[in-house]
Structure formats: structure tokens, C-alpha cells
Design a protein around this nucleic acid. Structure first.
Lengths: 213, 213
DNA sequence: AATTGTATAATCGTATACGATTTATTGTCA
DNA sequence: TGACAATAAATCGTATACGATTATACAATT
């Protein structure tokens, strides 16, 4: 019943983290033999992992040419945020009635850790943890499984921008505001704040991607 | 640059169609050896196809136990429709300003074919073709790639219900109404009609899934 | 009769091997 | 020198083989 991680899933998790952490950059080729050798496995599970990552949009597969880290255009980033806004507002709206004290406490704890986290990649992970912590109360696992790869797709670019400015500070203010609205059970305000939060991240990323040629 | 269909993708397409057409029923096991033998290939590409279908939610993989056609509970079906409503209304809204005469014509042609189509499985495919025809004008490929498997997940159950009642007739009326609103460029009405259209399908499926014990 | 244990069969997961395709390199000719 | 063909190298895609895991059948025990 429990699905123990097999080799392919472990490889996928490893590659996912490498992409999120920026160790693997956009358009970089992922050589099956090389990955297999590095991890001490054969190509077959590596290929299965790549198929999985392709479904998540993190890599692009070209037949007989191999796998490459997907690059995001400004238009694609904008599309992802449009989707995220549509889905995350639904998730939060559905979640708020089911938020309990322990959930809110845990969400706040994540924010407190983020306040003092200096590693941007780690901060990025915690960022999603905070959002996911709230959304999971909606009891919509498929919705979350759709959101997760969308988040990762933009997060790996945002992480490059994080160190630049006061993005993290602004973001944290918005997080605390959203959390407070959730505590108050104010659905309209919480959803509105979340939309603004995502929109500001969207424009930040858009300008960043534009500047990159 | 062009991605020619490799063996795994062909197998995935074949299995997808078998699931949609109801040849493979819920909870039915998918034996890798059997599929490989039937299609005259080895297990490796079959496994890659199964990983792909798992990502689409059509099959569930248990480690060392194999693949099974995913079964849908009433709650999961409801969740899928919640997601679809959120995304498809966004898609239609974004699409309407870009709808051209040829697109509208093609959409109407699909509806005309559906009017006289007796094979429910084929009708089901055309149903998605109609919606996708409109959505594609939104220029949001990732949104459509998310919607497609969601549609297939519920369509394979709806097809069982189609023959029963005047579901198809009602559905077609709604389709024509949506199309007309699109022609008029009336975004509010089109989106409202679409929401109603999906909601009625959702309740239809919910009652059907409830009746199945 | 129900339950536990064991042997056997079925099935899965992955390493290895090899042919097919693409990419890089070299060499030839205008 | 530059374009282009031929060859070599790298890489991919898939079949085969085999150990590992799980399911099944049946005997032994309580």
C-alpha cells in the first residue's frame, strides 16, 4: 500500500533539487550515462525520472537528442502565474474554513525560520512549505500536486533574483498579512492579499526575465 | 527540434485511448509483460509510458506491485471539476479576445458532428476538441496541458453515463450557447455559461459515482 | 475453522548489451 | 579559405537477462 521510493523516484527527487538549487541551469543538457554513472545506477531508472520531470515541465525531451533543463520565457512565466493565481486562490478559499490552530502555528513557525534564513535556495523551499501548509487544509491533493511543479518552475528563477533586493522582506510582510487574514477567517481579504502577493512576484520575475536579453 | 513520437509515447497514447474508451476499467491491473507482448515491444518503454500516465493521474503505480487504472471517488471527481472550473474560465476569458472567424467556424463544425455522432466514446473526444478549440486561442499551452488529463480523468466515467439520458442533448444546447456568447464577444456571459456547463456535468458525475456504491 | 508458515509462481525493477540516431570531426574539392 | 561529404564518436532507445519483491496455493498448527 505504501509506495516506497524506488530508484527512479529518488533520481527524480535528486534532479529536482539540483534544478531548484540552481546547480543545473536552463538549457543545460542532462546526459543519461553521466547521471547514471554519478549516481551509481543504470540508465533505465534515469530515463524514468526524466519522463517524470518532463511531465512536471522542468526538463524538455527531444527524441534521440536527449534531455535539457527547460528554459522559461517571460510569456511562459506569466502563464504559470496566471494559473497559480487561479488555483491558489481557490485552494486558500477552500482551506480557510478548515484551518486549525496547529496548522496556523506551524505556518507561522515556517515564517519565523524564513526570517533568519540566509540561504536563498532553502528560503525558497520554505516559501513553498508555508503556502502548502495552508493549502493542504483544503483537502485537495490533486490541486496541490498540480501547483507544486508550477511553483518549482518559477522558483528556480526567483532564487537568482532573491539576493538582489528587498524582495524577501516584502514577501515576508505579505506572508504575515495573509496569515493574519487566515487567522481572522477573513476569506475575501486573505484571497485578495494572496492574489497581490503572487502578482507582485509575477511582475518581479517578468522584469527579471526581460532583462536577461 | 520536432519531437517524433517514440515508442513510449505511442504506448502511452494507446493506453490513454483504451482507458478513455472504457476498454480498461478502474482498478484493473496493467501488467507490463502482457502489454509489452501485445504491442510487440519490451517492458522498458512500457514502463516509461506508465510513468507518463501516472503523472496524468490515469494510472496508479505501486512499487513492486505494478500499475492499476486509477479509480475516482466522488470527492476526487468534485475536486477535478473545481480545478477545471477555475482554469477553464480563465482560459475562455483569455481566449475570447483572440477568437477569429475560422476558429469559431471550426468549433461549430465540431458541434455539428457531435449532433449526429452515436458512438459515445467518439462523442467524448469531440467534446474535448470543442472546448480545446476555443481555449487554444488563449495562447496558454501549459494551461491546456494541465486541463487535458483532468478532462480525460472524468470523461472516462461520463462516457458510461452518456447513453442513459438526455445528457448529450442538454450538453449540446449549452455548447451552442457558449459558442454564441463567444461570437458576441460577451465574456461575462460566456464564462458564466461555461461555469454552469461544468457544474452540471460535475453534479451529474457526482450522483453517478455515488450510485456506484 | 481460522491462522500461520512455507514453497512456488507471477511480476516487478534494474543492469547489461547492442543497434539506431544524432552530433562532432576530419578530409576532400571547388 | 569555405562548403560539403564521409567517417568517427557520442548519445540515445530498446531488447534481453536476471535478481528482488510480491502474490498465490497449500500444508501444518492451534
Amino acid at each position: 500500500m505504501i509506495l516506497t521510493k524506488n530508484t527512479a523516484e529518488s533520481i527524480a527527487a535528486h534532479l529536482r533539487l539540483s534544478i531548484l538549487r540552481g546547480d543545473l541551469k536552463s538549457n543545460e543538457p542532462l546526459r543519461q550515462d553521466k547521471i547514471a554513472e554519478e549516481l551509481g545506477v543504470s540508465k533505465v531508472p534515469v530515463r524514468e525520472a526524466l519522463v517524470q520531470l518532463k511531465a512536471e515541465g522542468l526538463v524538455t525531451l527531444y527524441t534521440n537528442r536527449g534531455a535539457f533543463i527547460s528554459a522559461l520565457t517571460a510569456a511562459e512565466a506569466s502563464e504559470i502565474y496566471t494559473i497559480r493565481i487561479a488555483l491558489e486562490t481557490v485552494a486558500l478559499e477552500a482551506a480557510i474554513p478548515h484551518l486549525t490552530a496547529p496548522i496556523l502555528m506551524q505556518a507561522e513557525n515556517i515564517l519565523r525560520v524564513m526570517d533568519v534564513e540566509t540561504d536563498t535556495a532553502r528560503w525558497n523551499e520554505l516559501n513553498w512549505d508555508f503556502h502548502a501548509q495552508l493549502y493542504q487544509a483544503a483537502q485537495m491533493p490533486r490541486l496541490i500536486s498540480i501547483l507544486e511543479p508550477l511553483h518549482m518552475n518559477v522558483a528556480r528563477y526567483l532564487v537568482l533574483y532573491l539576493k538582489n533586493l528587498g524582495f524577501q522582506a516584502t514577501s515576508q510582510q505579505e506572508h504575515y498579512a495573509i496569515l493574519q487574514a487566515c487567522r481572522d477567517g477573513n476569506v475575501t481579504q486573505a484571497v485578495g492579499l494572496l492574489r497581490q502577493h503572487l502578482l507582485s512576484a509575477s511582475t518581479t520575475l517578468a522584469t527579471f526575465l526581460m532583462s536577461e536579453t
